[in-house]
Design a protein around this nucleic acid. Sequence first.
DNA 1: GTAGTTGGTATACTCTGTGATACTGATTAC
DNA 2: GTAATCAGTATCACAGAGTATACCAACTAC
Lengths: 116, 116
Amino acid sequence: MANTALVRNQTEEVKALQDTIYVIGGKWKLPIINSICNGNKRFREIERSIPGITTRMLSRELKEMEMNKLIKRTVYPDSPVLVEYESTPYCKTFANIILAMIEWGKEHKKYIQEEA
Amino acid sequence: MANTALVRNQTEEVKALQDTIYVIGGKWKLPIINSICNGNKRFREIERSIPGITTRMLSRELKEMEMNKLIKRTVYPDSPVLVEYESTPYCKTFANIILAMIEWGKEHKKYIQEEA
DNA sequence: GTAGTTGGTATACTCTGTGATACTGATTAC
DNA sequence: GTAATCAGTATCACAGAGTATACCAACTAC
C-alpha cells in the first residue's frame, strides 16, 4: 500500500478521539468541568450554574470525577460543614476542547438565527 | 451585583456548550464526521475506519446527519450501484473540536503510560 | 458453484444514563 | 414557629442509545 503511514495515523487518531469521547462523554461532564474552572466551588453554586442538571446527576458526576482525579473535594468540618470543589491541573487540560465547543455553539446560534 | 457582565457571559457560554453537546453527543457522530473529513466515502470504508461501530448505528447516524445537512449522500445508479458520502462545509466547522479531542486523547495516553 | 463484497434493513434485546420526586439533619433568617 | 439554605442520598421509572445477529439482492473473483 502506498500510504501505510497515513493509514496508521488515521487509526491512531480515531482511537484517540474515541478515548476522549469515553472520558468526557455524556451530557454533564464538560459543563461541570467548565463551571468549576470558572471558579464555582460550592455544590449549589455549581448546580445553579448548569441549566437542567439535577442534584442527583451532579452528585454522581462529581463523585466519579473526584475518583478520576479531575477535581478535588475538600470538607471544612466547622459548623456548618462547608464543602468545596476545585479543579486540578489535569482538569484544565480540557480547556481547548471546551473553548472549541463554546465557540461552535455560539457560531451555530448565529447561523440558526440568520436562517430564521 | 458587581459583575453582572461576567455572570451573563458565563450563562451564555454554558448554554453554547450544552447546545454543542446536544448536536454532537453520543458515541459515534464525531468519529463519523472525522472519518468522512478524512476522505472516506463508501459505507463499508467508513464502517471499517471506526472500531466498534455496527452497520446499524452507522446507517442511523448517517441518515440523521444527512437530514441535518452535515453530509451529502450521492447515489451513482450504474450497475453495481455506488453510494458516496461527502462532508459539507458545515461539517467542517467541527474540525477544531475534533482536533482538540484527538490531541487530548493522545496526551492522555502518554499520561497513562507514564504512570504505569 | 462458492465465497466475498457492497449498501444497507429487520428484529430483538440490553442497559444505563437520565429524570422526577421526596427526604435528611444542621443551621440561619424572619 | 415557619421557611429557606446547604450538601447531598434514596427510590422509582423510563426512553432511547447502543448491541447482536441475521438477512437481502446484485455483482465479482476464483
